[in-house]
C-alpha cells in the first residue's frame, strides 16, 4: 500500500465500488483519472471489484414460492381491514399534528394551549346555555299546555 497509503486506498476502492454499483464508472477511466497503475495493489483490488460485480448477479425467487409464502403469512383475510385502516390513518394524522406541536417554540405552545382550552370552555358554556334554554322552553310549553 506504499503507493497510496492505507486510508486513501480504502477511500478510492469504496468510491470506485459505489460508482460501479450505480453503473456510473468504467475501470479504465477510473484508473487513469486517479493515476492508478493496472498492476499496483489498488489497481488489482479495483479490478477484483469489477470482477465480483460481474460474477455475483441478483437472483430472483420463483413467483410460485413468493406467492405461496405470501398466502401463508397473510393467512385468512383480515375482516374489516378497511375500517381499521381509516381509523389507523386518522390516528396517524393526529400523531403527526401532535409531533408538529411538540416542535413549536414554548411561547407558541403556550398560546396554542390557551387558545384550545379557551375554545373548549366556550363550546362547553354554549352547549350548557343552549341546554338550559331548551330546558326552560320545554317547561314553558308544559305550563302553557296545562
Amino acid at each position: 500500500m506504499s503507493d497510496f497509503g492505507m486510508a486513501n486506498s480504502e477511500n478510492l476502492l469504496s468510491i470506485y465500488t459505489d460508482a460501479l454499483l450505480r453503473g456510473q464508472t468504467d475501470l479504465q477511466s477510473f484508473l487513469q483519472e486517479h493515476n492508478i497503475t493496472f498492476d499496483s495493489t489498488l489497481g488489482r483490488l479495483v479490478r477484483l471489484a469489477d470482477y465480483l460485480y460481474t460474477m455475483l448477479p441478483y437472483v430472483k425467487p420463483s413467483p410460485e414460492f413468493v406467492e405461496s409464502l405470501y398466502e401463508e403469512l397473510v393467512g385468512i383475510e383480515v375482516s374489516d381491514s378497511k375500517d381499521w385502516f381509516s381509523q389507523f390513518q386518522f390516528e396517524r394524522q393526529l400523531e403527526r399534528q401532535l409531533e408538529r406541536f411538540r416542535h413549536l417554540p414554548r411561547p407558541m405552545q403556550l398560546a396554542a394551549g390557551l387558545t384550545i382550552t379557551a375554545g373548549f370552555f366556550w363550546i362547553a358554556s354554549r352547549v350548557r346555555r343552549e341546554g338550559l334554554l331548551s330546558g326552560t322552553n320545554d317547561q314553558d310549553n308544559l305550563e302553557k299546555s296545562a
Binding site: P61, L69, Y70, L73, V74, V78
Partner: peptide, 13 residues
C-alpha cells in the same frame, strides 16, 4: 394487520 405485513414481505422478499 397481516396484510400490511404481507406488503412489507413483498417489498423485501
Amino acid at each position: 394487520d397481516k396484510q400490511a405485513f404481507g406488503e412489507l414481505y413483498l417489498r423485501y422478499v
